[in-house]
Simulated assay, not measured.
Amino acid sequence: MTTVLLVDDQQLVRSGFRLILQVETDLEVVGEATDGAEAVAAARELRPDVVLMDVQMPVMDGIEATRRIAAEDTAKVLVLTTFDDDAYVFDALAAGASGFLLKNADPQHLVDAVRTVASGQALLSPEVTRRVVDRMVSAASKASSASSASSGESTVSAATEVSAGSRPPATGLDRLTPREREVLVHVGRGMSNAEIAAALFLGEATVKTHVSNVLAKLHLRDRVQAVVHVHRHGLIETD
């Protein structure tokens, strides 16, 4: 049984999620919280497998709550986002979220996402991945323009360091096999193991093994960090 804590400041939203999840025989909603502070306390008390976390809430927002829950390792956090708050995605990544899901996702995607995160995998929907990439490209463009307008100093700005256009030293990438690198690029596009298997004509178990090897070799926590790694090092550009 996978236990879930619902965190959202809107009662209607929490009720809707509860209705969706409670009909599944392997999922159990064990609690609800209306803000981040309540979420942190409830996670400590209930020790749920997954926290379904909203971002914009009073008292303490979902980003800070995610950071505290991840630091205490009391649960895995699945962050709910919309196109209006995708600017928070980077902060949530740094805070330790295990996945992101759009609030307008259909019920089955919600159920699958909870199961995916509970199983130890990370989840970043293709829609959110595209928004992350767009923001990286935008940051790179602004950093490039600022650099061109400067006096020509060679110092690289912090914004450029985290953008898709920058190429930090690709530590560990040389340890990947050609197939592992190929799998990593597909992970960077937000593809699931099943989608990667279909694209590369491999078995899903084989893809899972490749992903595990990639994470271990690059010292990445999960697929979410892998997505950021891919775009930081421009791997999709060169694919």
Rank of each mutant, 00 (worst) to 15 (best):
D86V: 14
S15V: 12
P169S: 14
A92L: 10
V7W: 03
P168H: 01
A170S: 14
T66E: 12
A92M: 03
D8N: 11
Q108A: 12
D239F: 13
G96C: 07
L200K: 12
G234R: 09
S125Y: 07
A33E: 04
V89Y: 05
T238I: 13
A198S: 14
N213L: 15
G152T: 06
S147M: 14
L202T: 03
V29M: 10
F17D: 02
E153H: 10
V50C: 02
I196D: 03
L12T: 12
V29W: 09
D106P: 07
H233W: 10
A140W: 04
V211H: 06
L124D: 04
L218G: 02
A199H: 08
P48D: 01
V227D: 07
I196K: 03
S150E: 11
L27Y: 05
L173M: 12
G16W: 10
H186F: 08
H229P: 00
A198H: 08
H210V: 00
H109C: 00
T206M: 05
H233N: 15
E24W: 01
H109F: 00
R130T: 09
T82L: 12
A170Q: 12
N193G: 10
V23A: 11
T155V: 11
V214W: 09
T81A: 11
G234A: 08
A146C: 00
Y88F: 08
L235Q: 06
I63K: 08
K208Q: 15
D61Q: 00
A164V: 06
L124H: 03
R67F: 01
D106I: 02
A170T: 06
L220V: 09
A37H: 05
S166P: 03
D73G: 09
A170E: 14
D91G: 15
S212M: 12
V133M: 08
D54F: 13
